[in-house]
């Protein structure tokens, strides 16, 4: 019999050499800190959004360059947008939009802007504009989703949260396959919708005399000298855009409001009816409740007085 076989199990385990230090044991390596850059690159879902955002930024740069905007503006936008994504700066999308607005108005970075009387006619369904709008939507969507994955996805419940309260992030495991593809489809749709709405707003003007208060714009009228007989075009566009937003919201609220009514729980419906009944009768109810409270108070006072009288009666020597 081998002498090694006679050793107890504990001693035999001691003979096994320890693993060399240079071999990394994967199971023991700690998971990266979700706040770190490394974590952003390690998770494929997060990485995809990061790359999608950066690609959209590159597209914005190219489109602006093609539109004749000073490359400094494009570079500035890429730097602000890219840094905001990588450093998870929640305000970066807003600054990105404002800087983009600045360079769209002043392509060379400084006032005055170049006036173009044909811009309104030429600016319909321009490919560069569609690409720019779509790139901006992709960048913003990627940026916001990245913020949700790495910084905060759900708002705090309290108005003033405690410092120790940690924000809730969306776990990367919840990223479903095809999310970016769906985002691109949606972007294509909304970019087209934006163009169509702008086409509508610039092709139609208000007609207060017509049965339908809208009519097609007479383009020649726009370039005629002297006072125009209709509403100023700027005011016309403002009213049309406001009207579209207002009636669109109204329609959506009506549809979803009716849907909410249909799916309302019995308790919710009961509360709604009770609240309406209370609102109609609250003055009478209040008066009755106040009188009752006054009656109880008076009865309690009388009881107290009677008790005191009783006590003094008992304490009196006979």
């Amino acid at each position: 019999m081998n002498s090694q076989d006679n050793k107890p199990a504990k001693d035999r385990r001691a003979d096994i050499p320890p693993p060399p230090d240079d071999i990394e044991v994967e199971a023991e390596s700690p998971p990266p800190d979700p706040d770190s850059l490394r974590a952003m690159f390690q998770d494929p879902g997060v990485r995809n959004y990061l790359f999608a955002g950066l690609a959209a930024l590159a597209m914005v740069f190219v489109t602006l360059f093609q539109k004749g905007v000073d490359p400094v503006g494009g570079v500035l936008l890429v730097v602000v947008g890219g840094a905001g994504m990588v450093l998870r700066w929640p305000a970066s999308p807003h600054f990105f939009l404002l800087i983009l607005l600045w360079f769209l108005i002043f392509p060379f970075g400084l006032p005055p802007p170049d006036e173009n009387p044909f811009e309104l006619e030429d600016g319909r369904l321009r490919v560069a504009d569609i690409l720019l709008a779509a790139s901006v939507v992709v960048f913003l969507a990627s940026n916001y989703r990245l913020i949700g994955l790495t910084t905060q996805a759900l708002p705090f419940e309290q108005r003033y949260p405690a410092k120790s309260q940690k924000p809730i992030r969306r776990p990367p495991e919840l990223i479903r396959p095809g999310e970016i593809a769906r985002l691109l489809y949606l972007t294509a749709g909304v970019a087209l919708a934006g163009q169509l709405v702008w086409l509508f707003v610039t092709s139609v003007e208000l007609d207060d005399a017509g049965t339908i208060p809208l009519r097609l714009v007479d383009v020649r009228q726009r370039f005629r000298r002297g006072p125009s007989d209709g509403m100023p075009p700027a005011l016309n566009r403002f009213i049309l855009v406001s009207g579209l937003v207002f009636f669109g919201t109204l329609l959506a609220r009506l549809v979803f409001g009716y849907w909410r009514l249909r799916i309302m729980s019995p308790a919710e419906g009961g509360m709604l009816l009770q609240d309406a009944a209370w609102d109609e009768t609250r003055r009478e109810q209040m008066r009755v409740a106040r009188w009752r409270a006054w009656g109880w108070r008076r009865a309690a006072e009388q009881d107290e007085a009677a008790k005191r009288a009783d006590q003094s009666e008992r304490g009196r020597p006979r």
């Binding site: 983009l100 108005i105 006036e115 504009d129 720019l132 909304v190």
Partner: peptide, 20 residues
């Protein structure tokens, strides 16, 4: 309202974002 005589891109961009 203000910019269409200079550029229509902000309006189109804003409408696209609103649609989104």
């Amino acid at each position: 309202v203000v910019l269409p005589n200079y550029t229509v891109v902000p309006a189109i961009l804003a409408l696209t974002l609103l649609a989104w």
